[in-house]
């Protein structure tokens, strides 16, 4: 039976969803901040920040994974420091989430930045003349008006996290039950003859998850648009 998942396959699917969820949850506020800074502020080093944000998009994923290993590994400068606080990334699912978050980050920032830039600053000015502080303006005007873009960015980030492979396998390897997500499970299955059925099952799961995420974002974006403008 094609859709008869083994416990190991379920484990990979559940882990992928957990990793992607955590990765998206933690990178969203940072992506929002970075997108806002890039869209609205002029500051020294803006181009550098822009480059840094986009780096994971253009670097070979294996390089990103290597950098993560060096920096966040147990003997890496940040990794060693965080280990003292009880947070370990290397060869743990948290590391898979970190790798996914970093790889998804540029996609989220891009989508959110576009939607923030589409908000008319004249509306924010109008808010200021009515007595709204900058924080209040952001919460009541800028943020609600960019919700469709933020949703799109979030779903895009989630889908990217689900599919992350290169950086993840370099940084945390593919330990079943610990760091073996759906893509690395597919890769592992393809290395062994006779496992094509299992690989196909996971491929189908990937397709369904990705399509579902895209459709969900489309529906949500339409709904918020309708709620906001009444058309």
């Amino acid at each position: 039976m094609l859709l008869d998942f083994s416990p190991a396959e379920w484990q990979a699917i559940a882990l992928s969803i957990k990793v992607s969820f955590v990765a998206t949850l933690f990178s969203l506020p940072l992506a929002l901040t970075a997108a806002y800074a890039l869209a609205r502020w002029d500051f020294f080093g803006k181009q550098f920040l822009n480059g840094l944000v986009h780096l994971p998009l253009v670097l070979p994923p294996v390089v990103t994974g290597y950098v993560l290993l060096v920096v966040f590994g147990t003997r890496g400068p940040v990794g060693a420091f965080l280990q003292d606080w009880g947070l370990v990334f290397a060869f743990r699912w948290t590391g898979a989430a970190l790798a996914a978050a970093i790889m998804a980050f540029p996609l989220m920032v891009r989508a959110i930045r576009l939607s923030l830039e589409a908000v008319d600053p004249k509306l924010e000015q109008a808010g200021a003349t009515l007595g709204a502080s900058p924080v209040w303006i952001f919460l009541t005007i800028t943020l609600p008006l960019s919700v469709p873009g933020i949703l799109a960015g979030t779903v895009l980030g989630f889908a990217k996290s689900l599919g992350e492979f290169g950086a993840t396998i370099t940084f945390v390897s593919a330990i079943p039950g610990q760091t073996q997500t759906v893509p690395s499970a597919i890769y592992a299955l393809l290395q062994v003859p006779g496992q094509e059925d299992a690989a196909l099952r996971l491929v189908l799961v990937s397709v369904v998850l990705a399509m579902g995420a895209l459709l969900l974002s489309e529906v949500l974006a339409r709904r918020t648009m309708k709620r906001m403008t009444g058309v």
């Binding site: 000015q125 109008a126 808010g127 200021a128 003349t129 009515l130 007595g131 709204a132 502080s133 900058p134």
Partner: peptide, 8 residues
Amino acid sequence: AYKRKLGY
């Protein structure tokens, strides 16, 4: 602007 108590 937001402290000026205006109606624009």
